[in-house]
Amino acid sequence: MTAYVRAAARAFEMSMKLRAVNPFTNFGWLVFPLIFVVLGLALLGGGGKSAYAILGGGLLGYWGMAYVEGGNEIQNERWSGTLEQIMGCPTPLVVIVVGKLCSSLVFGALSFFPAIAVGYFAFHQSVQNIDPVPFAVSFLVLTFAFFCMAVTLAPLYAMWRWAFSVTNGFEIGVYVLGGFMFPISQLPAWLQVVASVFAPTWAVRALYAATGQPFGRQYALWWAVSIALSCGYLVIGWFLYRLVDVRARATGQLALA
């Protein structure tokens, strides 16, 4: 067990080092949220909806990091020819993925800094009325949701080369379903149904509620649903990791870029 913790910690460290010098990473947490906050504030700034623009920009960066970068990790391993080697070592893929994901969550969380800064300095807008405890809890629940989704998706990238381009193409769609920059209640009903099986959606709803709405029972419900869905993903993930060990070895695609 300690050996696995050590392996995950080392994967985290390696991933942090690689990311720190990776321009895509730095684009993802620094520039990308910035552009969206500017767009968001330009559109939403006037009507007291600036929380959606500022936090939304941060959420976009956070999610992008956890989701795209998490997938990118596997894709990068493929390109550098190391995927085969990490699959061939006596440490389960999930241990390595967890370590790497923690690093992408760290970088992702950084997204909130440029988002808040540009809001404050360029538009003189900030997020008001934060209710600290529910806000913090919602943030943790959201982080857990991101983590579970990304862990669950990772084996798909190892199994199929095209999986990454599919999820990549879906990235912006997730901003919609997650209600990152606008409440999902304005979406067509069928999309709201789709969004409701999406764990981050509930956490994001709680997060925005904590910037103005009074604390109440509904928070517990949102958190519980989000956590339950996240755990559901983990169950699916468990099967996927079992599958990947067989599938990837059967097709011989690990070595292909």
Binding site: R6, R10, L18, S80, P90
Partner: peptide, 24 residues
């Protein structure tokens, strides 16, 4: 191929040593 080019040789070895679960 099969090495992390942007990291040092030592980092590469340490990483794989941990993946092979070798005590520190």
């Amino acid at each position: 191929r099969g090495l992390y080019w942007r990291l040092s040789g030592l980092d590469n070895l340490r990483y794989f040593a941990d993946l092979y679960r070798i005590p520190p």
